[in-house]
Structure formats: structure tokens, C-alpha cells
Amino acid sequence: MITNDSRLPVAHRTWWKAPMAATLPGLPLLVGELSMFYSEGYTSGIEIGILLGVALLAVAWLLPHRRSMRGLRMMTAGGALALAILPLLYAVLLGVAMASG
């Protein structure tokens, strides 16, 4: 029996680019921040943001490889990267503020 291939979802050929662009700089930051903040023994707001960043990064890799999911994949990868950079940026801004005072 011949099936109609036009209705089957087509895999997007470059689906991996957005998660990879967020994983390369974001994963080392997330692992370093998680090891630094997770050892305190209590859950803080920064730790929840870091865990959310790890979850968003995993979701960016696990989304279906269809072209229609490209926007959602880019948003989750960008959100994961933003949550990875945010604690580091906050620490740098606090250091600048303390040094200028």
C-alpha cells in the first residue's frame, strides 16, 4: 500500500544549531554555578534559576525535530543561556559597585 508522504512531518535539517549555540557557553557556566550554589544546603532563588536553566537546556534538546518547533527551540535555548549568564552578570555588577564605592 502506498502512503501519502506529504502529511508526514519533515525533520528540520539544522535543528541542532540553536541548542548547540546555547550549550557550548551555557553548560560550563551552569555546571560551575550549580556546584557553587548547590553546596549551601538550602534552596535559594539563584539556585532555582540555575536549575530552571538546566531544565530549559534539556527541553531545547528534547523538542521534536520539526521545522515548526524552531521558534520554541530557539526561545528555550536563549532562555537557558540567559539564566546561565544572569548570576555571573549579577556578581560582576556587584563587584563593580563595591569597587567604585
Rank of each mutant, 00 (worst) to 15 (best):
M36H: 14
S39F: 10
V92K: 07
W15L: 01
A80Q: 03
I46D: 01
G79I: 05
P28S: 02
L94F: 10
R7W: 13
A21E: 13
S44R: 04
A97T: 12
L30T: 07
E40A: 11
V10L: 07
L81E: 04
R7T: 13
V54L: 15
S100Y: 07
E40R: 10
A77T: 02
L27R: 05
A22I: 09
I85N: 04
L52F: 05
E40K: 07
I2N: 11
L34P: 00
A77Q: 03
M98Y: 08
A55R: 02
A82I: 11
R7H: 12
E33M: 13
P87M: 02
G49D: 03
T14Y: 15
S35M: 14
L52K: 00
G79W: 05
L8D: 12
L94R: 15
W16S: 08
A22R: 06
G95H: 01
D5I: 14
S6Q: 13
A60D: 01
A21Y: 09
M20Q: 05
W16A: 10
L29H: 01
G49N: 11
P64T: 05
G41R: 03
Y90D: 13
P9D: 00
M74V: 08
R7P: 00
A60H: 00
I48C: 04
L63M: 08
R13H: 12
R67T: 08
W61G: 02
L52N: 00
T23F: 15
S68H: 02
S35P: 00
A91M: 15
L83K: 06
V31W: 12
Y90M: 15
W15F: 14
L24V: 15
M1L: 10
P28M: 01
R70I: 07
L72F: 10
R73M: 10
A80L: 06
F37I: 07
A55I: 13
L93Y: 06
T3A: 15
P19N: 05
V96S: 07
L56K: 00
A99N: 07
S68F: 00
G26I: 11
F37D: 06
W15A: 14
L24G: 04
L30K: 08
